[in-house]
């Protein structure tokens, strides 16, 4: 039964992808991209990846769309029509697709328990997590403890990308200095009562849900990455409703920068502290006299670091795009 549903969703995914490429209005393409992300999230959920589905729904459909729209308002909405000879590209793409499809017949089938992926290290994670860390969500355990180096690297990629965006967008526009856009007061939906009231009603619940996802990550789907994205989405909604100025008064630039740097720093410091306490880098067992409790404490700390960095980075990126309009 579920396989029919999965096939339906996957087919929709292909249709949406083709529609995105064919759409000439970029606004339409970005909106279709949001649909694509939601379909992807549903597919992930069917494939037992609840954590990933949550991330994709919060980030792919929420934050990415807003950032793309921010960039669109600074560039152009319509794609220029160009007559190109697409024959070569089309034949290359078709040939590669057929080759890839041919190659899939060598792969293990969907859900095959004998597949090589399930033989190597995954059973160890599943059997050792209750003994070593004692939290139900194995994804969080692997993310926070067993592969904490990896996550540290990813956090620093987010950090670096955020710094890069700020470098690129905070420089003054050399071309025109006079304000060619509408003054900042008219940005946002401030004059629209209904969205404003409903938005204000929902905002605390979105942030509350974000905090729940953050601290419930050990027991259910969730964790720092998702929580950071959800809270950032809530604050972006606030910024869209109340205008950018009010949002910057609530969460100023200095706070955002402190969040971006502080979260990454917190993560690294946990590792350094474990080294000083006689363990390996990011080996939380030494944090407490009880190694299992030490592991749990370490995971909570680094998840907090991840959440703070992701939230700060996404907000800083959004405001960098939004502020660019006023130059």
């Amino acid at each position: 039964m579920i396989i029919i549903f999965a096939v339906f969703l996957l087919t929709l995914l292909v249709i949406t992808a083709i529609a995105i490429v064919r759409a000439e209005n970029l606004f339409v393409a970005v909106m279709l991209m949001a649909i694509f992300s939601l379909l992807m999230a549903a597919n992930f959920f069917i494939l037992d990846a609840a954590d990933v589905a949550l991330t994709e729904a919060a980030i792919g459909a929420g934050v990415t769309t807003v950032i793309f729209l921010g960039a669109l308002s600074l560039t152009a909405e319509n794609e220029k029509k160009v007559e190109l000879s697409r024959g070569v590209a089309m034949s290359i793409v078709t040939a590669t697709t057929l080759l890839l499809i041919y190659a899939t017949f060598e792969k293990p089938k969907l859900g095959d328990p004998e597949a090589p992926v399930h033989q190597h290290v995954a059973p160890w994670y599943l059997s050792e997590t209750p003994k070593l860390i004692d939290i139900p969500n194995v994804v969080t355990a692997v993310l926070g403890s067993f592969r904490a180096y990896d996550t540290l690297g990813e956090v620093f990629v987010v950090f670096t990308a955020c710094i890069g965006v700020l470098f690129l967008l905070s420089a003054k526009n050399p071309a025109d200095k006079q304000s060619r856009r509408t003054p900042p007061e008219s940005i946002g939906l401030r004059h629209h009562l209904i969205p404003k009231v409903v938005g204000r009603l929902l905002f605390p619940f979105i942030v509350l849900f974000g905090l729940y996802v953050q601290f419930h990550g050990e027991y259910g789907p969730g964790g720092g990455f998702q929580a950071g994205a959800i809270i950032a989405t809530g604050i972006i909604l606030f910024a869209l409703l109340e205008g950018e100025k009010t949002a910057l008064a609530a969460v100023p630039h200095s706070v955002m920068m402190a969040m971006v740097a502080g979260g990454a720093l917190l993560y690294t410091m946990v590792g350094v502290v474990t080294m000083f306490m006689g363990g390996n880098f990011l080996d939380y067992s030494v944090l407490s006299s009880n190694p299992v409790f030490g592991q749990q404490m370490g995971i909570i700390l680094i998840e907090a670091g991840v959440g703070i960095t992701v939230c700060g980075a996404l907000l800083a990126i959004f405001h960098a795009f939004a502020a660019r309009e006023n130059y």
């Binding site: 990896d150 990813e154 955020c162 967008l169 980075a313 795009f321």
Partner: peptide
């Protein structure tokens, strides 16, 4: 899970 978050950051860099 981590790749999705990194993906949005790099997309934002490209858009910038």
């Amino acid at each position: 899970l981590t790749a999705i978050v990194v993906g949005v950051s790099t997309t934002a860099l490209g858009l910038a």
